[in-house]
Nucleic acid binder design. Structure first.
Lengths: 316, 316
DNA sequence: GATGGTCATAGCCTGATGTTATGGGTTCTA
DNA sequence: TAGAACCCATAACATCAGGCTATGACCATC
């Protein structure tokens, strides 16, 4: 299919004809449009010769629309109002009075960062729709690449293959929102449970409960530094489950602080920082040019202002 | 009042966005529009920066409309279809499938030239509306000047003040369609009724029946040349009335041949050429640029083809 | 990796579309 | 009947939007 070009009708002609219809003279139309009189006069002549159809007739010292001119003037109203509607809608988008932002974030964020963001968005920009899907960082990045979402909140551990600051996020706009401390979870009865800070090396003989694949990867890395290879007996993504397993003395675990934010710590489990300390970073990724979209920019800005201190999140 | 310029939204942008929406890529849009790929790419960037609102996001090796782009694309359909409607109407006008021509002509033409023109217009261009008003030449010229009509059919006598080839028709487009002979009408009982050609000087003592003011002017001019000042006893514009008056022996008259076309010659009146011969010209006047209007041009063309031979009209 | 497709950038060039200055008509008025 | 006021058309000129070609960078697929 080919789109018709009708190269002989441009917006300017339409505006001019309309202005002439309204003012009754070329000079008047020029004033209305903010042009000089010859500009309008010439443009009109060009249009007439393009159409090979006179639009005005000089009558006396003034000018009058021909039938063709009147026909065009009538259409001009429809056309300019369609244009006005379009510019209006665009202005709405630009003015944050409307718009949709599609966000993805990792599961733990679903119950912490995301609800808080939704609340502040609803307050600051009630017109903007925020759609949300939960996705692990790799899936979130894929979605971003294929344009399925506008923003992704991900996490990574230092040295991660999927660290967005490395090549995995090539071409995407990326920044770190927060970092948080990793902690170990021990049964209250554990010999090290009374230490201020737990040495990971001291947990070499324990059974471990691992989280998501990438968290498990991080666990392995930490243990390797501490000089042992952990025995992993359970795997679950669910922080509450982990805490209860630990409380039931099924093993020890390592969790990010954020995971603890919405789970209540059962009796029988304790949280301890560990040494060597390890951290997790929380990132915000955006498609290449997406951040220039006003609604997206507004969301990003609110994410920056988000306070995660009560969850143990700190600025990077 | 001032017309909004929205200088930031031109047709090209709208076409481009629409083409991108339909083809899914910038290259495809360029093909659709018949442009090179960089042209579209650059135009798009200009538009985006004018709007300070991204319209597309690069996704993979292709491109995808942002929300703003989609909004614009939706409007694009409305706008281009409004434009198409306008160009369609204009094409109709240009193609003689529609249009209105407003015509004025002098009374005698109303029952001769005009009906014949209406008939051939209806056959050749059934879509064109022809509106008609009867008007004496001076009024017809005035109407033309103020744009109330498109064409005027007038008449003049040689030397007339209102001869359209003199200054009265300044700025109007003018031409002579026909000339016709003036004839005298005599009672059948008149001494000169048997002459082939009647010498006007021989009618010096008659009572005259004059027609419209300008015809009367012509009569005075002819008689002056013949060396007398006619006695005018009746004045009427109605050719039938004149003929019957002459048949009733109320006087003699001078009429153009066309005036006899629709009146039946009563017994008791005879038509004779006269000497010195005098003529009347029938003109077509058009507003300055009006003849370039297709429907008007078509009407003019048919007027040229009109055959008035059976009424005594001859080409100028 | 090599290849083909897609977008972006650079450099160039043309013409569309403004501008000011000026002239010719037309209308209104002293 | 001038003359003033107004309006349109034309001329000469300036500028930049918007096109093109050539080329580079990136991405996907084989």
């Amino acid at each position: 299919m080919t789109i018709d070009l009708d190269p002989q009708l441009d917006l300017q002609s339409i505006r001019i004809v309309r202005a002439i219809a309204e003012s009754g003279s070329i000079t008047g139309a020029a004033r209305l449009l903010g042009y000089s009189q010859p500009a309008v006069s010439q443009h009109l002549q060009r249009t007439e010769s393009r159409l090979s159809l006179p639009l005005v007739t000089r009558v006396g010292r003034s000018v009058k629309l021909t039938e063709a001119g009147q026909v065009l003037a009538r259409h001009a109203i429809a056309i300019t109002s369609a244009l006005d509607a379009a510019t209006g809608d665009l202005a709405d988008l630009a003015g944050l009075r409307t718009g949709t932002v599609r966000l993805a974030a990792f599961p733990t964020a679903s119950s912490t960062i995301v609800p808080r963001l939704l609340a502040s968005m609803a307050e600051a920009h009630p017109g903007i729709q925020l759609s949300y899907v939960e996705a692990q960082p790799p899936e979130a990045v894929a979605l971003l690449r294929e344009g399925g979402i506008d923003l992704a909140v991900t996490f990574s551990y230092p040295g991660d293959r999927t660290d967005p600051h490395r090549d995995s996020a090539n071409g995407l706009n990326t920044e770190t929102l927060f970092t948080e401390e990793m902690v170990v979870v021990l049964p209250a009865t554990h010999p090290l449970a009374n230490e201020e800070v737990v040495d990971v090396a001291g947990l070499a003989g324990e059974r471990w409960i691992a989280g998501c694949p990438r968290c498990r990867g991080h666990l392995l890395a930490v243990c390797e530094v501490a000089g042992f290879d952990p025995t992993i007996t359970f795997e679950t993504d669910n922080a509450s489950a982990v805490l209860n397993m630990v409380a039931s003395n099924l093993g020890v675990a390592m969790l990010p602080r954020l995971a603890l934010a919405t789970a209540t710590l059962p009796v029988g489990a304790v949280i301890r920082p560990h040494t060597p300390q390890s951290i997790r970073s929380i990132h915000l990724l955006a498609g290449a040019g997406t951040r220039r979209v006003p609604s997206v920019a507004a969301t990003v800005s609110l994410l920056h202002k988000l306070d995660g201190g009560d969850w143990g999140l700190v600025a990077p």
